[in-house]
């Protein structure tokens, strides 16, 4: 089993200072203090700290977080790509943390890592989904519709994120997950293989292409006093169909349906975005979400089985696969896989 090895905090502070010195052109003599471990999800180690440095305009103080890759995560994430997305969003009215520094190879901090601006708030999904006051979670869900709409209206084409093959982005997203499935599976799973065929056969034309977060759900946004302060975990961000994010937010495991029905969420989103959400596309991406979640579960399970991780939460993730596939087959078999049927 992989054992988590933690660097000495004071040595880690010195390494972070070196990284800030290298990555922040204007930073003079950066100083790091109050370094402490915080929960960074299943796939990353997280360190919170306070950073200070001198700039020509004066002293700058910034609460920061360092997110460092650990072996055996769900997916082989690319910190450079994630950092690129956050750098493109920095300075825009999207609730994304500012990108501060990148350690792409891990040559400074010991593992591929990024440093981001740290926001106040909690990302506790359990507290969000089982709240003392459901009205707060309802308010947060409606705000999530607004924040998601704002993200999808971001002008990514003029922000350095465009590539030569963006028109194929939705198909490439399916092919990416299909490849991850083939790479990560322990044995053939013909029902899931078949569903990837089905997704490619039925791929809808997107009304628009947007920057899609890719993992937007309770647990991946910070909230405080009834407001969303920041969206977290951008490692799956990509260009794609915006319906993908809406569908992922409403996956059954973490769905806020009991606070805000999907239809109400979609209408709120439409009002903010000024563009309609085709319900059939939304239904399609709910099927895609189940296939993606099944793939993540297979990868996590294989990671534990092959001793790449000691995270017990991955041990039984394969048991989540049948539920996801059952949803897909039920929605498809109904032969009317639109929002009315799959929203239940």
């Amino acid at each position: 089993m992989i054992a988590a090895t933690l660097p000495d905090p004071s040595a880690m502070e010195r390494r972070i200072e070196l990284l800030l010195q290298r990555e922040q052109e204007l930073a003079q003599a950066p100083r790091v203090s109050e370094l402490r471990r915080v929960f960074g999800g299943n796939a990353r180690q997280a360190w919170a700290f306070e950073a200070e440095w001198d700039e020509p305009s004066g002293l700058r103080h910034l609460p920061c977080i360092l997110l460092s890759q650990v072996p055996g995560g769900h997916v082989a994430s690319d910190v450079t790509a994630e950092y690129g997305v956050l750098a493109a969003l920095t300075g825009h009215a999207i609730r994304a943390p500012s990108a501060i520094a990148l350690d792409a190879c891990g040559d400074v901090t010991g593992a591929p890592a990024i440093i981001l601006e740290r926001f106040n708030g909690s990302a506790d999904a359990v507290a969000f989904l089982k709240p003392k006051n459901p009205a707060v979670s309802q308010q947060l869900t409606l705000e999530l519709a607004d924040v998601t709409a704002d993200l999808h209206q971001f002008d990514w084409r003029n922000s350095g994120l465009a590539t030569h093959s963006d028109t194929d982005a939705p198909l490439r997203q399916i092919e990416l997950w299909e490849q991850r499935y083939f790479d990560g599976r322990l044995h053939p799973q013909p029902p899931l293989t078949h569903l990837f065929h089905w997704l490619k056969d039925h791929l809808p034309e997107p009304a628009q292409l947007s920057l899609v977060h890719g993992d937007l759900r309770p647990g991946n946004f910070l909230y405080e006093e009834g407001r969303i302060t920041a969206l977290l975990d951008w490692e799956m961000a990509h260009i794609g169909d915006p319906a993908e994010d809406l569908a992922w937010i409403y996956r059954s495991l973490w769905s806020p349906e009991k606070f805000v029905p999907l239809e109400v969420f979609a209408r709120r989103y439409e009002a903010r975005a000024g563009a309609p959400v085709d319900r059939e596309r939304l239904a399609y991406y709910r099927i895609f979400s189940e296939v993606k979640f099944a793939t993540l579960s297979i990868i996590a399970s294989a990671s534990f089985a092959s001793a790449k991780t000691a995270n017990f939460r991955y041990a039984d993730r394969a048991a989540k696969v049948p539920g996801s596939l059952a949803n897909c087959f039920a929605w498809i078999a109904a032969g009317r896989w639109n929002a009315r049927d799959v929203a239940a």
């Binding site: 029902p191 048991a319 049948p322 539920g323 596939l325």
Partner: peptide, 19 residues
């Protein structure tokens, strides 16, 4: 026929994991 078979296989796997 393959689609129907895969749905039945998924049902059995749902039983196997206790769903």
């Amino acid at each position: 026929e393959l689609h129907a078979l895969f749905a039945r296989m998924t049902d059995r796997e749902s039983m196997l994991v206790g769903d």
